[in-house]
Design a protein around this nucleic acid. Structure first.
Lengths: 142, 142
DNA sequence: CTAATCCTTGACCCCGACGTCAAGGAAAGA
DNA sequence: TCTTTCCTTGACGTCGGGGTCAAGGATTAG
């Protein structure tokens, strides 16, 4: 099949396939007229790449999977190098999720602090003579 | 103070300050010789920007905070626009963390599946007639 | 035969937040 | 005065994963 059909069957674009080829990830045979020619095996390689890309893997990270398939293995993750990429990705994800959770907590704190400060100011503005706090929540302005 | 000193005091570079100025985020006065001139208030603005950047805010998202400070408020998040940015960021973070957690789960599944498949193959290779595992410590090469 | 698709390569564009280099002016210390 | 350091503007590079032309050749439908 030609590039347009492969792209369509994988739900991507011809530009993307040429890009993968330029990166050495998905080389193509050529038919007599110079057109790129692909087969079902290429479609499997491409689907492997796309799946990993959808997971957020870098293109380079998909390379071991592609090479594993090309080596004749039934799955892209049948090789140790692919498993290593999986593990590295899990570590990266854990680290990233942890960082984001920490940031989330800090931003949440900042929001709560800023909101309570605004409420205090609003209350003071409403009763200029003095809030006269019945409980211990009344704070003097910074 | 001049640009080099401000950059040093904020732990950033002169290039960054010129970039912020080009974006209209941190305009600078000029002294007679054409040098940029900053004061302590600029340092506070800059620190506000840097703090938010460290949190992963886009530069544009820091603008309400900077404008809030320039409007004379004691904190960059004393204004409603800043609080809105906080809230939007929390939503974004929650969405992102959720997506990453989902990907993490899927990758974990894939890894477990691939690993168990390899173990099966290894066991079959070791005892071609039938796995019959008496003890799991026997390791074949590769 | 001709028009409409498809294919080829090459080359520039995009985003964000700067890094880096170049050419030249200003200031400060010895 | 000389040298070093700081400042100025301008312009291009980076990174990833392609998007979007442009100019021209091949193929196919009518």
């Amino acid at each position: 099949m030609r590039i347009g059909e492969l792209a369509a069957r994988a739900g991507t674009t011809t530009r993307t396939l040429r890009y993968y080829e330029a990166r050495g990830l998905l080389p193509a045979r050529r038919s007599g007229n110079g057109y790129r020619s692909y087969d079902e095996a290429d479609l499997r390689l491409l689907r492997q790449i796309r799946t990993l890309q959808d997971f957020g893997f870098d293109l380079e990270e998909t390379r071991p999977f592609v090479e594993c398939l090309r080596a004749g293995h039934p799955e892209g993750d049948s090789c140790p190098a692919s498993l290593a990429v999986y593990r590295r990705k899990l570590d990266e994800l854990d680290a990233l999720i942890g960082e984001l959770a920490a940031v989330r907590a800090k931003v949440g704190e900042q929001l709560a602090r800023a909101e309570s400060a605004r409420e205090r100011l609003a209350a003071e503005a409403e009763v200029p003579g003095g809030p006269e706090p019945e409980c211990e929540l009344g704070g003097a302005g910074l």
